[in-house]
Design a protein around this nucleic acid. Structure first.
Length: 479
RNA sequence: GCCGAGGUGGCAGAAUGGUUAAUGCGACGGACUGCAGAUCCGUUUCCUGGGGGUUCGAUUCCCUCCCUCGGCUCCA
């Protein structure tokens, strides 16, 4: 099995990946709190873990991927109250919106989206064992985790509890024994969703839903846990304390993977800062390929800055260049079928295409270096672009060989997925008629008429490209 | 203050103890074209935050300082 290297936030270094029970891999990714629309920052993280799952699958692992949905917490309740909606219905609506966007983005590796409120019995069981073992205590109808009882608290984030600033951003709860203790069962407030428990009616705290879910689905230990860098503390730190306190097994997770933040003009994109760009709007404007390409353009752990009016536009140009030969090959094969006659590949192209696949795998297996992977693909695309006219001369199997690196990228990176709305339907008949009229106009020297036709098509989003007597057309966005 | 991640050309953004530091965008020049924001070719040799140290050699390893971002119990 291929050597895969993964940066582990706990070890703070790149380690060889070795699952607990190969070829099975358990992957848990912290999902959304769907109190509002998902934005392009969220999507960065989830596209990345989609690639992780796709790549591990390609390399022979059987990935079970789970992404939780925090469908009830303070934010959800707060927002629901603002707009007079039911909290759980509000959360479900935004979750379904996210699921639709994820589908458009080509995120199809998540096997299950467990919702926090579907795991109340597991949560209560875990709270009970934490109290029994002395890690948690009930106070004023709530239950708190006592951090002082878990000496390894802080290991993941490097935080020492005595160095924390209690109350830096939220008020200290007087029911706690120590300010750093965190709530795992929150006493019900009238009007909020609540469940009966031995400690009175209430609802789960934030961190415990994940450990209740993973304990149920993966057991006390599993392979990969992912999420944004902003979740390391307190969320993931607390998960370790909860799970290892409840099960007495360690480590909960073998590899902690954290994705860098998407920033907007240097600041983290977040709803609370109000600098968000909604995912669905970005998808409408640029389409899934441009977004995926943009995310892959940086290492997943680096901060990635987004500049409106620039970043996606640049990504669109770059992706168009990259995809050009892939599109031409696909068009020829779609037009003539895989049995089309032609000549063999010249040795240089054949060797390049064949050797590339292994280099792509090797590069990506080095801590998911998507940017280097993309650079390799650019080299290949540039080679093919400079010999675009030659493509028409190759037979079907030869073209399939040239398509192989793009097929690799389609299955692993989710790029080069051609939108089905294309040359079929009404455009397929109308555009050739318009092009024929334009050719006649050009032939008789009536360039004003020819340009009118070109402009009219451009206004409809159809771009023309003259190559001698032949004119190709495509859907594109005029500058 | 503490913890963490970063600082690379006009811009975005990789990599490596060692010939010209990827790749893309942009720009410029050329080809093609009736023209073209479309396509191709070429150029973009003066880019690794400051200062020390280790080394034959540092962008890479070590120390220190400066700056940016994230976290410090809402967060992808």
């Amino acid at each position: 099995m291929r050597r895969v290297r993964v940066y582990d936030s706990m070890a703070r270094e790149v380690r060889d990946f070795a699952p607990i029970a190969p070829p099975r891999v358990g992957l848990f990714v912290c999902g959304l709190t769907p109190y509002d629309e998902a934005h392009i920052g969220h999507a960065r993280t989830f596209v990345f873990f989609d690639i992780v799952a796709r790549a591990l699958t390609r390399w022979g692992y059987r990935v079970f991927s789970v992404q939780n949905v925090t469908n009830l917490d303070d934010k959800v309740i707060e927002r629901a109250a603002e707009i007079g909606a039911d909290p759980l219905e509000l959360a479900e609506r935004h979750f379904l919106e996210w699921a639709a966007s994820a589908e458009r983005l080509g995120i199809r590796t998540v096997n299950y989206y467990p919702h926090a409120t579907d795991y109340i019995p597991e949560i209560l069981t875990q709270i009970r064992s934490l109290i029994d073992r002395g890690f948690a205590y009930a106070s004023e109808g709530s239950v708190y985790y006592e951090i002082a009882k878990f000496p390894r608290y802080g290991e993941l984030s490097g935080q020492r509890t005595e160095a924390l600033r209690p109350g830096a951003r939220i008020e200290v709860d007087p029911a706690k024994r120590a300010p750093e203790d965190f709530v795992i069962w929150k006493a019900a407030t009238p009007g909020e969703p609540s469940w009966e428990s031995p400690w009175g009616p209430g609802r789960p705290g934030w961190h415990i839903e994940d450990t209740a879910i993973t304990l149920r689905l993966f057991g006390p230990r599993y392979d990969l846990h992912g999420g944004g860098l902003d979740l390391i503390f307190p969320h993931h730190e607390s998960e370790i304390a909860l799970a290892e306190g409840a099960t007495w097994e360690s480590p909960l997770v073998n590899y902690w993977m954290h994705g860098g933040m998407l920033t907007m003009r240097g600041e983290k994109m977040s709803k609370s800062l109000g600098n968000v760009y909604a995912l669905s709007a970005a998808l409408d404007e640029f389409g899934p390929m441009v977004l995926r390409f943009f995310y892959m353009n940086a290492h997943y752990r680096s901060p990635l800055d987004f500049a409106r009016g620039q970043s996606f536009e640049e990504a669109r140009e770059a992706y168009a260049t990259l995809a050009k030969p892939a599109d031409r090959i696909a068009e020829i094969l779609e037009r003539d079928g895989p049995e089309r006659p032609g000549v063999d590949l010249p040795d240089d192209l054949a060797n390049e295409a064949e050797g590339l696949i292994d280099r792509l795998d090797t590069t990506l297996a080095d801590d998911f270096n998507t940017r280097e992977t993309i650079a390799l693909l650019f080299g290949f695309s540039r080679l093919l672009s400079s010999r675009l006219a030659e493509l028409e001369s190759f037979h079907g199997a030869a073209l399939e060989e040239l398509r192989a690196p793009y097929a690799w990228a389609e299955s692993v990176l989710g790029l080069f997925v051609r939108t089905p709305v294309g040359r079929t339907g009404a455009w397929a008949t109308i555009v050739p008629v318009a092009l024929a009229a334009r050719s006649r106009a050009r032939a008789r020297g009536d360039f004003a008429e020819a340009d009118r036709i070109r402009d009219a098509l451009a206004a409809a989003g159809i771009l023309l490209e003259d190559h001698g007597s032949e004119t190709r057309w495509s859907f594109g966005t005029p500058k």
